[in-house]
Computed example of a mutant assay.
Amino acid sequence: MKKGEFDGKVVLITGAASGLGRAASVRFAREGARVCLADINSAGLDETARIIANAGGRCTQYAGDLGQPSSCTDAVRTAIGSFGRLDVLCNVAGILRFHALADVTAEDWQMLFAANVTAPFFMTQAAMPHLVAASGNVINVASTAAFIGQSYTAPYAATKAALLSLTKSLAMEFIKSPVRINAIAPGGMMTEMVQGLVFPEGADTDMILRYCGFRPPNTPEDIVEPMIFLASDRARAVHGACYTADNGITAG
């Protein structure tokens, strides 16, 4: 593998078994990083690891439910145990569900917050001492749902707004340290996460079209490019920011 921008660095990526997490893992490896893959889907992790190995990259993996704080600690321990340091944490893993208000159960609410808020929080908590030591950084994957109201996604949107606030609050808490903490907010993106999802019965199509945008959905690779920038030393002035990559959905 050719020398890359992340040679000598270690990147931990959640949601690495598929979609954006897999695309980011492969790209960071191609840029020279040693990558720790984390996800609940062990078979998907094996496939991502195979792709990286075939490209000449190095990785380790951790399979567990990151909605459990102890699993977050174990994932970070895996990265440190395998590679001795941690430079970048990418909190990519997440869950999307469409619900009408009346259909949301307590289990739905708790599942979404566990995956989309609890996991990034405790991953960051576990990783932070190592990131500060390495002058590293965190990238949280938010969503345009953090900025605009989107019908039938109220619990999901609430988690992404919470994640954005978490990003900014932690950025201020660590403003005097060398670490950087940022977010990226994709719009529609064709990944395994959205395949098979259905809108509630009787959903108003006009309400859905309001946040679909005029341009085609992004591919994961479209979003990886700004992630690479945010994680790199080229973005040394970027802290507490949210990079919106949504094909203009939130522009007007």
Rank of each mutant, 00 (worst) to 15 (best):
P217M: 13
M227L: 12
I13S: 05
T60V: 07
C36K: 00
M1Q: 12
M172E: 14
D39I: 07
P200S: 14
T78V: 11
V92M: 07
F98M: 07
Q125Y: 09
T205H: 01
V117E: 09
E221C: 07
E192Y: 00
G188F: 01
L166Q: 14
T60I: 00
A241C: 13
C36A: 14
R85Q: 15
Y211S: 06
P200N: 14
V117C: 12
F28G: 13
I139K: 08
G149H: 04
C36T: 14
Y243F: 15
A171N: 08
N182P: 01
A133G: 06
A63M: 04
N182T: 05
N182F: 01
A154Y: 13
N116A: 03
T205G: 00
G94H: 03
I223C: 08
R50Y: 00
T78L: 03
L89F: 04
A23Y: 06
A24I: 12
F199M: 09
L112Y: 13
A23D: 11
Q125A: 07
G4K: 05
Q61G: 08
G196Y: 09
A119M: 11
L37D: 10
A183D: 05
V132H: 00
V138G: 07
I181F: 08
G187F: 01
L20G: 03
A115S: 15
A161E: 10
A102H: 14
L86C: 05
V104N: 04
A102L: 13
G248E: 02
L12F: 05
L164Y: 05
N91F: 07
V76E: 09
V141F: 10
G4P: 03
I40H: 02
V88W: 04
S71A: 15
P69E: 05
A245S: 11
D65L: 09
N218K: 03
G240T: 03
V10W: 10
L96F: 05
L197R: 09
V117Y: 10
Q68T: 10
D108S: 07
G187C: 03
L86T: 04
S232T: 06
A127Y: 06
R234F: 10
R215P: 00
L197G: 08
A162S: 15
R34M: 13
V179W: 03
P226C: 07
F28Q: 12
V117G: 09
H239V: 06
V88C: 13
L37M: 09
M128I: 06
A245E: 04
I13N: 04
F28W: 11
